[in-house]
Amino acid sequence: MSQAVRGQKVHKRPIGKSLALHAALIVASFIAVFPILWILLSSFKPKQWIQSDEITLVKEPTLANYSNLLGNTDFLRWFWNSTIIAAFTMIIGIAMAASAGYAISRFNFPGKRPLMWTFLVTQMFPVAILIVPIYSIMASLELINTPTSLVIAYCTVAVPFCTWMLKGYFDTIPAEIDEAGRVDGLGPFGTFWRLILPLARPGLAVTAFYTFLTAWGEVAYASAFLNTNDQFTLAYGLQTFVPRPPALPLWDLLTPAAVLITIPAGIVFFFAQKHLVAGLTAGGTKS
């Protein structure tokens, strides 16, 4: 048993074990993709075949749905809006969460414990119930129908979690590093920025991806705050393809849109996941 030591160094694994590992992952991957695969395949079918009770893998494949989506709806505009909002949410959210997480991890300031609790409590009250007063607040700040309103709202969703997560990561970074920074004449902010953040890369990657997706796929706030088609985000714009809830969604528009909306999320994750391995070596050398 002892030959398969965990960690980043490659050890030989018996073939049987390797097969089992791949088999498990393939099964999991299959379960993960099969509803998405259905969406993908459907996006290439002509409208009338998408939701028929006859199940086919491919039937009269066509790109008509895509050209219809890109040509006749505001999809590209929404795509751009979403990109901007998700990017700003990611940057602002991570900045807030990382600084707060670091302060909580390293300093024992008065108000720290209540603050941690506040973060939790803000996640507990159902947003569906708070949407009316939040709308009024946004209205009095004159932010209705602006991307800013959504960036702020998404930060309230993402930051508490990210702060908690990052606090956990910062906790694992040895305090000697802070001391070293202090000896070198760095202030608390300098230590945080120059020494700690680079070491917390896996944590930052996870939380960055999380904030990105929070903003990318959110519907409830977007549907509350946005009024005009030119301001819609992707996720909310897609809702217009589900015109009357008891009736069917417009699958011919919804499926290609869902495919296209997934791609950027995949790309962002691709970059984020590279950092999932990088942090340890840096942390390891120091301890």
């Binding site: 993709v33 998405i36 796929g217 519907v219 996720a235 909306i261 994750f269």
Partner: peptide
Amino acid sequence: IVLILPWAVPAFVS
């Protein structure tokens, strides 16, 4: 990447 896909598709679509 394949395993995070369920997270990447907007929840209401899935």
